[in-house]
Simulated assay, not measured.
Amino acid sequence: MTKLKLGPIADDKPVKVTVDLPASLHRDLVEYGRLLAESGHSPIEPARLIVPMLERFIGTDRGFTKASRGLRDGK
């Protein structure tokens, strides 16, 4: 089984956003969704992967965390 950073995708009410993706990135997202299905989940459509990936990216970005904490603290 492939170890992926992204786990199950929560079913949440989406907000519609239009994004143009390079074809190579779309192919990678399709493959990522397929690999998730191999780990016991249903295949995930590429559009549903984008939000959790961005959330994980922002959530693990130490520079962003530090900068946003500074803004909240008034620094």
Rank of each mutant, 00 (worst) to 15 (best):
E45I: 06
A67N: 12
I50F: 01
L6G: 08
L36M: 15
I58R: 14
R48V: 01
V51A: 08
G59I: 02
M1G: 08
G70V: 00
G40I: 01
D11S: 15
A37H: 05
D73H: 13
K13L: 07
L35K: 15
R34M: 07
G59Q: 04
I50R: 00
A67E: 12
L25V: 13
E45C: 05
V17F: 06
K16N: 11
R34Q: 11
D20A: 14
I50A: 00
A67L: 12
A23R: 13
D73Q: 14
I58G: 00
L35I: 04
R48C: 01
V17S: 02
D11K: 14
H26F: 07
D28R: 07
P52H: 00
P52N: 02
R69Q: 14
K3M: 07
R69G: 11
S24Y: 11
T18C: 01
V17Q: 05
A23H: 06
Y32P: 00
K75E: 11
G40P: 04
L6Q: 13
K13E: 12
D61I: 05
G33M: 03
R69T: 13
G7F: 01
S42A: 15
G40E: 00
L29C: 00
I50W: 02
R62C: 02
T65L: 14
D61P: 07
K16V: 12
V19D: 06
R69I: 04
I50Q: 02
K13Y: 08
G74C: 01
D20N: 14
R72C: 09
S24R: 13
T2N: 12
L29I: 01
P14Q: 04
V51S: 06
V15E: 12
D61C: 10
D12F: 14
K75I: 06
I58C: 10
P43Q: 01
L49Q: 03
D20K: 14
A23L: 05
K3A: 04
E55G: 06
K3S: 10
G70A: 11
R72E: 11
I58M: 09
V15R: 14
P52R: 01
F57T: 13
D73M: 12
T60L: 07
A47M: 02
V30W: 07
G7C: 00
F57P: 05
V30Y: 10
P46S: 00
F57I: 11
S42T: 14
A37E: 08
I9D: 02
K66Y: 09
P22G: 07
A67G: 04
L21M: 00
A23M: 05
K75H: 11
S42R: 15
E31R: 15
G59R: 04
S24H: 13
R48W: 04
D61A: 07
A10D: 08
Y32T: 04
